[in-house]
Nucleic acid binder design. Structure first.
Lengths: 216, 216
DNA sequence: CTTGAACGAACGATCGTTCATGTTATATTA
DNA sequence: TAATATAACATGAACGATCGTTCGTTCAAG
């Protein structure tokens, strides 16, 4: 498994505050990061419900009791991870907000976001969180906010594309954006589940989506 | 919650054999059906991992020990449910195999399958099974077989549609079928998760998909 | 001296499964 | 047909394991 995404997650979370940063605060932040990192790996390998708090603590090299000094409970660990996952979407939203020809930007976004989800660790973690979101309201809300943000950014550029004449004139930007996001994600999940060769998935996805948007 | 789908499930499973049908066999089949029905409801309400064997037994009005006379274990209950879910796809596959104009049949299929998944109980149950399929090979295989069957049937009619001139000539039927199925399913799951009004989802889905297929 | 991080034993609950023990319906006898 | 043997059904207590969480204590930093 690739450790890259964990690094990102840990890096992201250390940005948040601007505290006095005593020696102890620093150590605490590191511990929290280690725990989150360990939790992500556990959830990826065995799923949220099959992972015990002891597994996380052991993997993080932290005692069971100490984990509860840093997190109120198991659920809160997942919530924090879900929030960090959300932060990883920021670059793609930023990309969509850039100036330039709508269609070119869209294609860049499509390739980038699809590549991001093509990594099994990202896809599986998202599935795990989504699955939990069905019954845990706080996670569900977080999930929907992520989605809405991404869809809104995409809808904006689709609308601009319509104005530029790059897309069909009768395109409902909002709904099309929803569907495109869903299609990218679903396609990624399938490729993770089937474990087959995934070389041509992106190309087919691009063809299909562009046909739907351009309609020519 | 709607009890209709459970009835179907139970009815489906009673068709299987053509046994001597003693009084005891009949009672046993009923018990098994009751247990499966109860399990489905539990899984829908609380998810697979949050459901205990005792919950299933209690809901089915069966003793804990007796449940193990009918099923080897909890996992096997889910496997059986997954298999029954698969059987529910049969009508849609059959629909795709019918003769007639490809486009009309496709539109009928699209509406039917989308409507099926629009029922929360179907969508959630599928999510639950999919989620489990990631780490349980037997369920995963079952899931992929379902999918492959549906995709193959859809690909066939898309190919016919290309011949008939109803769809774009450069359409890769196999890949397009994959994507269409994924899009229908993903769209349904989102609608379940968001709990918002879902009246216009089908119309938008249809527009989008047809634009992608027809490309005009 | 105060504070909170760090620890692991312990708690109560629940998990999936097994088991000993009746209790029936069915098949086999007479 | 009536009696009996048999095998499946039905039951809930019990098992060992593991769950998430709490607690009392130690120890070092502020």
């Amino acid at each position: 498994m690739n450790d890259r995404s964990f690094k990102i997650i840990v890096a992201t979370m250390s940005v948040e505050p601007q505290k006095p940063q005593t020696k102890r605060d620093k150590a605490t932040a590191q511990r929290r990061g280690k725990i989150l990192e360990a939790a992500v790996m556990c959830f990826l390998e065995n799923g949220y419900h099959q992972t015990g708090v002891r597994d996380i603590a052991a993997r993080a090299g932290v005692s069971l009791g100490n984990l509860y000094n840093h997190f109120p409970g198991k659920h809160d660990v997942l919530v924090e991870i879900a929030a960090l996952e959300r932060a990883e979407l920021a670059p793609y939203i930023a990309l969509l907000a850039k100036p330039g020809p709508a269609r070119a930007i869209f294609e860049k976004f499509l390739a980038g976001y699809a590549a991001y989800l093509a990594k099994p660790e990202n896809a599986i973690l998202t599935i795990e969180i989504t699955s939990e979101a069905i019954r845990k309201p706080d996670i569900g809300e977080l999930f929907l906010v992520n989605h809405a943000e991404l869809v809104a950014a995409l809808a904006a550029i689709l609308a601009r594309g319509v104005e530029e004449g790059a897309f069909r004139t009768d395109l409902d930007a909002q709904e099309a954006a929803q569907l495109v996001i869903e299609l990218i994600e679903a396609s990624a999940y399938r490729s993770v589940l089937s474990k087959g060769p995934k070389r041509k998935i992106l190309a087919n996805l691009k063809n299909f989506v562009l046909a739907a948007l351009v309609g020519k």
